[in-house]
Design a protein around this nucleic acid. Sequence first.
DNA 1: CATGAATGAGAATTCATTCAT
DNA 2: CATGAATGAATTCTCATTCAT
Lengths: 205, 205, 205, 205
Amino acid sequence: MVLGRAEETTVTRPQTRRKDTRERIQHVALELFLERGYDQTSLREIAERLEVTKAALYYHFRTKEDIVTSLIEDIGRPVDDLIAWGQGQPATRATRREVLRRLNEALDTGAPVFRFLQENQAALRSRGSADGFRDRMRALGALLTVPDAGMVEQVRTLSALFTVYFGTFAASHMEGDPDEKRAALLQVAWEQLDAAHGYTGEDGE
Amino acid sequence: MVLGRAEETTVTRPQTRRKDTRERIQHVALELFLERGYDQTSLREIAERLEVTKAALYYHFRTKEDIVTSLIEDIGRPVDDLIAWGQGQPATRATRREVLRRLNEALDTGAPVFRFLQENQAALRSRGSADGFRDRMRALGALLTVPDAGMVEQVRTLSALFTVYFGTFAASHMEGDPDEKRAALLQVAWEQLDAAHGYTGEDGE
Amino acid sequence: MVLGRAEETTVTRPQTRRKDTRERIQHVALELFLERGYDQTSLREIAERLEVTKAALYYHFRTKEDIVTSLIEDIGRPVDDLIAWGQGQPATRATRREVLRRLNEALDTGAPVFRFLQENQAALRSRGSADGFRDRMRALGALLTVPDAGMVEQVRTLSALFTVYFGTFAASHMEGDPDEKRAALLQVAWEQLDAAHGYTGEDGE
Amino acid sequence: MVLGRAEETTVTRPQTRRKDTRERIQHVALELFLERGYDQTSLREIAERLEVTKAALYYHFRTKEDIVTSLIEDIGRPVDDLIAWGQGQPATRATRREVLRRLNEALDTGAPVFRFLQENQAALRSRGSADGFRDRMRALGALLTVPDAGMVEQVRTLSALFTVYFGTFAASHMEGDPDEKRAALLQVAWEQLDAAHGYTGEDGE
DNA sequence: CATGAATGAGAATTCATTCAT
DNA sequence: CATGAATGAATTCTCATTCAT
């Protein structure tokens, strides 16, 4: 988008030994993984779009899976941090609201990778790449509930999580201002959270 | 060669196939697609698990994609019916509740295929197999909203749909009676629906 | 098409679905392994010389190593039989002589495979394919010695084994009648055996 | 070169390389060639075990084959000297005995390289690296025979050579004192030599 | 209905080698 | 002396698909 200007003059830079090849690979790989799916995306395609050779990819990543792993790590860390933070806080309404708010925020940044994980679950499962991810989602869920919650309360909590999580993906297909949409997701999720915990607005926790 | 005659008395089950082979293929294919992902599942594996040859699969299905298509059709029809029914009804609270109730029900039966679609989105997209599915989800969403709804109301509707849809998958990992879980999902989704439409329990629509 | 009679002159029979492809692969593979070494021989080359596709090889053998394994088994069995036979016999001079005689004979038939094993030891070791072979040689050696033999006696026995074994390979580069060469190898080996066991021609065992 | 000053105080051994890097490469290469075979050993592995980069190897050796060539030359020269010496001597019993004695000695020193050549014959043949070696063995054989020898005599000579040559490798797997084993090999080989030339211990040559 | 044999295309990966710095 | 980044060519292997029998 804001690239523009410099773009035009550079036509023949394939030879330019770049520093950022590793990141460029991650970027293009994610792009293609989203377009065509993980399994459908061959390293040849990634290399071609980058105008390097397949072997160059192998200089930077030991395997195809390694590329995916590096991608996941980048977004896994923020979520891990969030979980760690949440576990260190008292289990209050404020904490739960903050957890959802931060998740809502993290999803905004890492949306493409999250979507990739979401849409390629089966492909990644066999490779164990995304298994850690499922655990993280469960940990987040745990932060939002109370242990002795009834089934309906649990579902309401789950529902709040889904609203933020899946809502982010669905929202990208909806019209409207992105920030406004995000805010709406969070608001609704918060309502569900309050419903789950029987918070009516009168009594605090 | 000299089979014929002895056929009926045969004790060795290999012959048990015959007419229902087509369904057995669908069954095993779905099983493997869920275990290892669509792309990761080769026809060889399907054939092996069925104890037939690859070539035998080609007698029943023209291509690998055909298998998936047949699978989707089986569950697509119920959803199509649901959509058609919904579109023929007045846009009342009762209709919307019934739409969710039927979806909740349909998911119970067709859960494995839905999950397969869910987890293999990326793999199927390229082949156009599941695109029709996304459309169906959108059509369902449309049945639940009103045209001039605000963003928050839309999100609440979406949230209701997610609760039923994703909740079904998540619930399979939760402990508790399946029927009770299903009922809880529907109840929460209905609440969200009412919230989306500002229904307070006093005035009907 | 016009196969039958014309068979001999046929130039274009690639399409003919043959029965003996498996054996033809083994044959050509061994040929190439001997010419260029195991690692240097690619499946592409084997396929080309056979005028089939690489994939055809994989129909008949699961891996490249499997080809080698199948080759070794063919000659391993005769040697195993020989060892088994030897172990069932009393440890007399006659038995030892017979062991060498049979080895001399087996080598004549399986010479190419033995030579292949001999010249590709390092290449095969890592794959564990030929390890069983080393064991067999040792077992043969054991059949020829007595437990309490002195070092010099052991060396003489070893020497007899080497004469038959390595002599067969070296002999192929020497001029002269093959049968006569084989007989000479055996005669010398027998002499060494007698020397090893202090047999002078007077006293039997 | 410009290292100098800091040189002495260095504690971190990585620098310990320097001048002897070439030899260290030869050493590690031989080690790996023996462990995994020539073709199976990649320059990457050699570099890794040496804790240098692949490119560093190329500073010392033009190609992978050059490494092997340098290795062979190191042991080829002693054998060449031995051949030259033998050819300059009268074809007496004493000369032949001395040839075997020196070979026995040379094998002791250069055993690993000899073994490498022995176990990688096929891999090296295609590259012509070891062909010179086969010639050398033949030249040695020629030094031990007389031109008009009968077949059995020739075999006995060959046998003497094999005893020293292959015996050295086999002996490394046998228990006992190395020097004693070597002596035994030479003794037996000498006996075979005498047998080949009809030397009974009465009449000299 | 089903199989045995085969193919053509393409995948991931590895290797020896190069060269600007 | 040595490295980091890259390449071109090859390799093993897998897959969906075909077809004569």
